[in-house]
Design a protein around this nucleic acid. Sequence first.
DNA 1: TAAAAATACTCCATAGGTATTTTAT
DNA 2: ATAAAATACCTATGGAGTATTTTTA
Lengths: 295, 295
Amino acid sequence: MSVMGIELHHLRGFLSVAEEMHFTRAAEKIHLTQPTLSRNIRKLEERMGVRLLDRNTRFVALTAAGARLQQELSFLLPRLEEALHPSAEEAVLRLGFSWGFPAHWPQRLMSGFEEETGTRVDLVRRDEKLAGLSRGEADVALLWGAVDTRDMHVVTLLEERQVAAVAKDSELGARRGLHWAEVPGLDHAVNAHSGMADFAQWPSGERPNVAALCTNFDEWLEAVASGRGLGLLPESVAERHAHPSISFLPVTGAPAVPLHMVAPRQGGHPMAGKLMSMALRVLARTAATEGERRC
Amino acid sequence: MSVMGIELHHLRGFLSVAEEMHFTRAAEKIHLTQPTLSRNIRKLEERMGVRLLDRNTRFVALTAAGARLQQELSFLLPRLEEALHPSAEEAVLRLGFSWGFPAHWPQRLMSGFEEETGTRVDLVRRDEKLAGLSRGEADVALLWGAVDTRDMHVVTLLEERQVAAVAKDSELGARRGLHWAEVPGLDHAVNAHSGMADFAQWPSGERPNVAALCTNFDEWLEAVASGRGLGLLPESVAERHAHPSISFLPVTGAPAVPLHMVAPRQGGHPMAGKLMSMALRVLARTAATEGERRC
DNA sequence: TAAAAATACTCCATAGGTATTTTAT
DNA sequence: ATAAAATACCTATGGAGTATTTTTA
């Protein structure tokens, strides 16, 4: 009954005053203003039903009850605060991807997030469409292309041109570029987990021929290199995967490919949302900076 | 940093769920609704940055971090709650009076207050104008008549007719009543601490003659009994102090005497305000009940 | 007179509630 | 189909701030 409504900030405030014996300094120490701390102490006294501090404008002193409380709290509060700090083992957020992990800004995102939240970010590569999300092996994932949005919270980070990867010694190897309209008529190498070329969604008559079906990016790249078919991928990923046997051709008229950050709608990691919004912020700043650089 | 904003109600909620392994029951146990508890758990997880409970609509289970937290909290929280309960020694409010403590309703007030707040009320008689308030020997006081309102928080509980106490074998002993206009012309016995007859406030020409100046009620009553002068007092107090040598006479035209409850404006007992408002409530109910009885 | 606590107010974050939806067996 | 947790929305307590007043050595 009487304890009702007492909260930790009241106790932190009291302990601070009990240590400083001075409201203004005690308030500063815990980043409060003096009037707020004064009121919190009064509330604590009202709710406990006991005066804890004898005070006037010149002096602050503990009452008997206050001294007893300080003694108890100086033991209990630090332990409690400690218990609320998850161990380094526990404070981990696993960021999944299956291919095409972008350069530069994710590193800044991860270190910024770790600094701001104290939660470590572990990078996890899984060769699945959801990069470990569905099996609970990742908490958040970076995924190129279309994502089933039913059970997932999805945020689009950016969009990129797609390019075609072709074997240098294939018929297409000599070409300088392709047009999107040609694509359905060509043989394709497909990464089943990519989310890039979801051919099922294409009009049935125009569906490209799948000449090679792979289960991860590296297999797929080699399939392209060995001339089994062309592959589609985002421009920046192509840049990071130069291959002696592969040429990357611009595809005029091709739709842009989105990069998504994805997390489970329910039962997910409590900091997933924070990472996603921070990712948007970081990307906005990156875009702004690059804009400035261009000017 | 991460601990910011975690409060006791979050932890109480978590502990309740960890014990029940069932949100709805856990919510009932701590007198919350299930959605509120759900949100509080989510907030706790967000602020700690760690998932504590794996849950869906059918199952609730502790994560590793949750199990550790439960272990810590099941030790710390009960001790903390205990520390917030003042001991019986400390949870005391001293109610001062110097004379004329009323019958019936104060007893109900005191027991009601003790039951509702867990704070014991000790009755303290001190023969001073403020009945121990000024020396810090009482936290709240019941005082008849005028009270210096500068440093005190004052509430008027009721007003009563005043009557005159006269020695039966004095000249006034045979009278059936007095008129207020006669009072200045008569000899008075005065209790210096009473607050009743503050003669200093009377127009200087009409100030009654102080034939006997006493320092407490009992001396004063005997002074009246021995015929040193008349005394003024509230009707109900007269009723409780029948004296073989004293007659009580109505005084027509006399102003009513207020009964006040008084507490220091600053530095007072944190529950003083609660007692005062409860006193007003109790008296309102008493008045209502007596009103009904009359009808 | 000056330092410090208390008051008076404004604002807003969030705890708490009710009604409804989603989910898993 | 049903039990149970999650979501959506609303209300209002009270915590935090700024400006001012009061107090006491």
